[in-house]
Design a protein around this nucleic acid. Structure first.
Ligand SMILES: [Mn+2]
Ligand SMILES: [Mn+2]
Ligand SMILES: [Zn+2]
Ligand SMILES: [Zn+2]
Lengths: 137, 137
DNA sequence: CAATATTTGCAACACTGTTGCATTTGCAAC
DNA sequence: GTTGCAAATGCAACAGTGTTGCAAATATTG
């Protein structure tokens, strides 16, 4: 069980109280959190600092960023960076939860000449088992 | 070839110049258009009216609304939507343009028992040929 | 402890989308 | 064609989300 401080240090970023608290809020959450969700959980945090801390966590691989159905970014802790890059994700449009799938992400398709691929994401949406059952009963 | 006016009338909404122009811009577009894209194509249109027209087209079934990777809503004429489901898209993080790729999207991976797939999108990001060249000079 | 590169807090801003309200307009009934 | 009215439009003001510039504070290194 490695501490949040160790995680940050290992990821090569400075350890600051803001980063520790934000990461721990993400890790403790059952669902991906929006910036507004985090402001509610950390009332003392500065708005802009919060955006920048989230950005840092994403860049260093400790968090994942995805857009929800309303067009708002949601963040979730990703214990190990390489873990989530090796599989696709499924987002339930009912409850908002994100599930990690077993299968490897598909290989990127051919790009036109001169194009450079920086990042790829296979985004699957639908209803999870829980919500499908609840919906159906 | 049914006219836009007929389409609107059949959908049970009033026929106005704004609705005709917006629908035709969507139908003529190669990719889903954001509100900003449409403002550029229809410089005389009022911002708010444009939002309301788009909303009307979605409600009456003539357009589809989806959120893109930046969290911005993009609209497409209903007929065109099925077209874009048959290939993946590449978004240039420099200029923001979206390119339709030739290859078919990869087959969806196996989902856990009870999960229902509603929609899938293979989202590729990077720099397009133009921006890569400009960046490199 | 001192040096310094990062990070923070704050103000100001940009972009996306919404609401209220007075005016205009599409369309149906006459 | 004229009239009446519900619906659509234009405009101003606003709310939410995210960004940028810059001075002050602070985490790390030595
Ligand atoms: Mn995952
Ligand atoms: Mn396409
Ligand atoms: Zn669910
Ligand atoms: Zn580009």
């Amino acid at each position: 069980m490695s501490s949040t401080i160790d995680l940050l240090r290992t990821s090569g970023v400075k350890v600051t109280p803001g980063r520790v608290r934000v990461y721990e809020a993400l890790a403790a959450a059952a669902q991906p959190l929006s910036h507004a969700d985090l402001e509610a959980r950390l009332p003392d945090a500065d708005r802009v600092t919060l955006y920048r801390v989230l950005d840092t966590l994403v860049v260093c691989g400790l968090a994942m960023k995805a857009v929800d159905a309303r067009g708002v970014f949601r963040f979730s802790a990703s214990g190990a960076q390489s873990e989530h890059r090796r599989h696709a994700h499924f987002r339930c449009t009912d409850c908002g939860r994100v599930f990690c799938l077993k299968d490897a992400p598909p290989p990127p398709p051919k790009l036109p000449r001169g194009f450079r691929l920086a990042d790829a994401e296979y985004d699957l949406r639908g209803t999870c088992a829980n919500c499908a059952r609840a919906h159906h009963k």
